[in-house]
Design a binder for these strands. Structure first.
Length: 568
RNA sequence: CGGGGCAUGGCGCAGUCUGGUAGCGCAUCUGCUUUGGGAGCAGAGGGUCGGCGGUUCGAAUCCGUCUGCCCCGACCA
């Protein structure tokens, strides 16, 4: 491709709305342009990268025996009503009407449609197992689209769905996808981690996420430094303490704490650590409000809390009025002592002695609170997010926390959808059996952003070879004044292209600095410079995007190196 | 959806408080010079200042209202 014909516009300055580095670089390098909130056009350069991701995903899915098909993006409401998700999905689902006022949605995912397809297509256990996949545009009307392509409303997903006769079969299909996903992210050159996850809205039992490790990631993941345990922080468990609680040394004392509203206020006033305080949160419950009690320095885990008996799901914090009616006090002065509500106490709180908490009276707190004396001995539950240093499951090692970008997710769905939509096959005995399903997603567009988060420097993007929009950028110096340079560059362009390399030939009549800056910004792995100086010595200048320095190579050496390093 | 902020040539911003002929940088176009790390000089084009309504002799500026966008919280590939 000749740069002069490629229509690429790069930016020196970044639009003010870009927050994270991948978003900025994607705009500056001309990969994407924004149309509206959460909607992006993939410009020619960006589309080349997107196609590379798709190609790798497609190859590995095919290798794993999955069958590509393509379902409609627009789906009839009836299917969603049958599975109950028409009502459950809420505003995330983009709904619309056709001219006959029939209801449709723009598919945010395709469990309903694929299960309908499978129920019509699959008759016999002999047709199983089968795994259908597609690469397609989805739409989710996200509450808050952000970070460019990382969390857009319209995005491209590879979604796959497996059908098996029984759970053992599902396990096999699931493990195949586990292996295929690992192969995909390996090939894409990404540093990733597989973590246990909550299956959330989609439903089902077993579920794992594939995270690209990056500080800008929206998810926190907990992993063990001495075992292979890794989990989304949503589901990483905490454990009851060893029961060795310190003995009470202080008397219960009620003290005036005017104006104290937060844990930080309380610690400041009393000169104690947050870990010696507890906080009491009031949430909506099935039969009135419920109190959740955590150590002052810990965070509530919503996924865990909403699974507790009597707690409303999704988790909803009670409003001020409800709190006042239920406790007689305002948030900021709450505590479990003499609290007349169902109370759940976190494991870590059960380990405390001589702690401080609100007195359920505005402007007053207790200090020297102890279980077994001021409060009943607690039955504790797992309520909080793990923190670095917590013990890992299995009893060995401790947890560390990292940030991750979720680029893939695999689920064992079981029969939730096949049951609802009557997707059955006949087994060996001629009896109808509901098929066991798995579903497997990869965020194609998100991968592009995630790859940049992991591979960039101050000058721009550094594409891993399998994602690069071009293999080589060919930079002639002063080509428009030197016939020798022009001829040499044209010849190289032809030769490299004929050898099957994807070459970006920067034939623009601009100063060398501009070409170098653009080449680095858009992140082409190999750079070959043709200059009069080098030609005199029979040499070309080669530099890899990751190299510090360039080196001079004989023409034939350079060609050989390029041809060898880009064989895929 | 709750809380905060922003909206002025393609992009980044100033001007708004204190109403009086819309400005700067980048980008674009023309010419000359320059040519190994985002060139210099000279010139040019491009904005009904987000929409609507109001106050005023006069509104980018004041008031009202609507819309869009961004950031912080609950969702997910």
């Amino acid at each position: 491709m000749r740069f002069s014909e490629f229509g690429l516009t790069t930016l020196k300055e970044v639009p003010a709305d870009a927050e994270i580095v991948s978003h900025k670089l994607m705009l500056r390098a001309g990969l994407i342009r924004r149309l509206a909130s959460g909607l992006f056009t993939w410009m020619p350069l960006g589309l080349r990268v997107l196609r590379k991701v798709e190609a790798v995903v497609r190859e590995e899915m095919n290798r794993a025996g999955a069958l590509e098909l393509l379902m409609p993006a627009v789906q009839p409401a009836e299917l969603w009503q049958k599975t109950g998700r028409w009502d459950q999905y809420g505003p995330l689902l983009l709904r619309m009407h056709d001219r006959h006022q029939r209801e449709f949605c723009f598919g945010p995912t395709h469990e309903e449609v694929i299960t309908d397809v499978a129920s019509r297509e699959l008759r016999s256990y002999k047709q199983l197992p089968v795994n259908y996949y597609q690469i397609q545009t989805k739409f989710r009307d996200e509450i808050r689209p952000r970070f460019g392509v990382m969390r857009s409303r319209e995005f491209i997903m590879k979604d796959a769905y497996s059908f098996d006769i029984d759970h053992d079969g599902l396990e096999v299909s699931y493990q195949k996808m586990h292996a295929a996903y690992s192969a995909i992210f390996e090939r894409l050159g990404l540093e990733f981690r597989i973590v246990w996850a909550d299956s959330g809205e989609i439903g089902g039992s077993k579920s794992q996420e594939f995270h690209v490790i990056a500080d800008s990631g929206e998810d926190a993941i907990a992993y063990c430094d001495s075992s292979d345990f890794a989990s989304n922080i949503e589901t990483a468990p905490t454990f009851p303490g060893d029961g060795k609680r310190a003995a009470a040394t202080k008397e219960l004392e009620k003290i005036a704490t005017p104006g104290v509203k937060t844990i930080a206020d309380l610690c400041g006033l009393l000169g104690i650590e947050a870990s010696q305080t507890i906080k009491t949160l009031i949430v909506e419950g099935d039969d009135g409000p419920v109190a959740l009690v955590l150590r002052g320095d810990h965070e509530l885990n919503a996924v865990k809390a909403q699974k507790l008996a009597g707690v409303a799901s999704p988790l909803t914090m009670a409003d001020d009025k409800t709190i006042r009616e239920a406790t007689g006090s305002a948030a900021g002065s709450l505590g479990p002592v003499d609290m007349d509500l169902p109370v759940y106490i976190d494991h870590a709180v059960g380990q405390l002695a001589d702690f401080s908490c609100g007195a359920n009276e505005e402007g007053f707190h207790y200090t020297g609170v102890n279980f077994g004396r001021d409060l009943a001995e607690p039955e504790t539950v797992d309520l909080r997010n793990v923190v670095a240093g917590d013990p890992a499951p299995g009893g060995e090692g401790t947890l560390s926390i990292a940030r991750g970008i979720e680029v893939g997710h695999i689920f064992q769905l079981g029969t939730k959808y096949s049951e609802a939509l009557g997707a059955t096959v006949q087994d060996q005995d001629g009896k109808d059996r509901v098929m066991e399903m798995g579903c497997y997603g990869i965020g194609i567009t998100r991968i592009v952003g995630a790859a940049i988060e992991q591979n960039h420097d101050d000058n721009g993007i550094i594409w891993p070879a399998p994602l690069a929009p071009f293999d080589v950028v060919l930079v002639p110096i002063n080509m428009h004044r030197s016939d020798a340079v022009r001829d040499a560059a044209e010849a190289l362009y032809g030769e490299l292209t004929d050898a099957g390399l994807e070459v970006l030939f920067d034939d623009r009549d601009v100063r060398p600095g501009v070409k170098f800056a653009d080449a680095e910004l858009i992140g082409i792995p190999h750079r070959l410079v043709v200059s009069e100086r080098g030609l005199g010595a029979g040499e070309l200048e080669y530099r890899h995007r990751r190299d510090e320095e360039s080196r001079n190579l004989k023409r034939e050496e350079a060609l050989k190196l390029l041809k060898e390093s880009t064989i895929s």
